[in-house]
Design a protein around this nucleic acid. Structure first.
Lengths: 155, 155
DNA sequence: GCGGTGTATGCATAAATATACCTACCATGA
DNA sequence: TCATGGTAGGTATATTTATGCATACACCGC
């Protein structure tokens, strides 16, 4: 019952723009699911559906979409840096992160996956990660971003 | 000013979980941006930030994230099917879509990108797209999904 | 300088969404 | 059978988010 309904929700949002939970309620009722907005709100949370602004015709509106890998990338990076990085140093257009032995590759791949546009590339050795930033001017910004990531658990 | 603030918003949500717009207001004010929730709401819309439910510790909560490629996949497929597909026919475990000459490959690649699990693969010729569904039972479901996509602009 | 046009943003509030609380409905085991 | 615990979901409401309207400011052409 609940499972069927949630499958229907996934199909609906995958096949047309659904702009609000009330709209989803109406679509579900047309399929025989007799539910209220409260239940849909819970379904959305359980399914992990995201509400995103999109351009449609002229204006900006919202729609619900299935969750993306990008979400996980961000939190993977967050965890990796917060748990593994012990120091962050910058020089010219590079940033050097220190990790416990053996973890550097893991951190480097998380950084790569995050796909920050200011970062040209990242290499992981054994206990050292080297991140190359596009320009020296941007280096401090990215360095600070690593420090934020590192600190946001402790803080 | 606005641009700086929006850059700050991106950095904030990229580096820590931000659970509500009010929280973002507080974080921005700590950095000297004196704004209200209304402005943040508009920034979020302009930046395309998505609000997604995530698991954190025990409970489920929400956070804002940068938009993902997955979102674009869905709307690319939506546009492609709505604008280009003229007919949808199914047979056993296959669905045949007709398009204007030369557009079939475009539609096929959008379907592939969408990564529907029921679809084994898709080929695009000149004006014909062939989609192979995992089983004959699922074919009508997928066919309907295409019809929904096709209709959701006109409807 | 002055009216006109466009953009940014606050304020107040509407609209949308989440949730505390309650009830109903199993399933299980004493 | 009854008590207990766990899940689903509605109702009412709190919380959060979006937006209509008004203002302020900058940039133009006259």
């Amino acid at each position: 019952m609940k499972e069927d309904r949630q499958r229907a929700v996934l199909t609906l949002v995958a096949t047309r723009p659904v702009h609000s939970q009330e709209e989803l309620v109406a679509l579900l009722q047309r399929q025989g699911f007799d539910v209220t907005q409260a239940t849909v709100s819970r379904d959305i949370k359980e399914l992990g559906l995201a509400k995103v602004p999109i351009r449609e015709n002229g204006g900006d509106i919202f729609k619900y979409v299935v969750p993306s890998a990008a979400v996980n990338y961000v939190s993977r990076l967050h965890r990796a840096v917060a748990e593994l990085v012990s120091s962050v140093e910058g020089s010219v257009n590079m940033i050097v992160l220190r990790t416990p032995p053996g973890s550097a590759m893991l951190v480097a791949s998380a950084i790569d996956e995050a796909g920050w546009p200011e970062v040209l590339g990242t290499m992981g050795g054994d206990d050292t990660v080297l991140t190359v930033v596009r320009s020296p001017e941007e280096m401090p910004v990215i360095k600070q971003r690593f420090l934020d990531l590192k600190g946001s658990t402790a803080a």
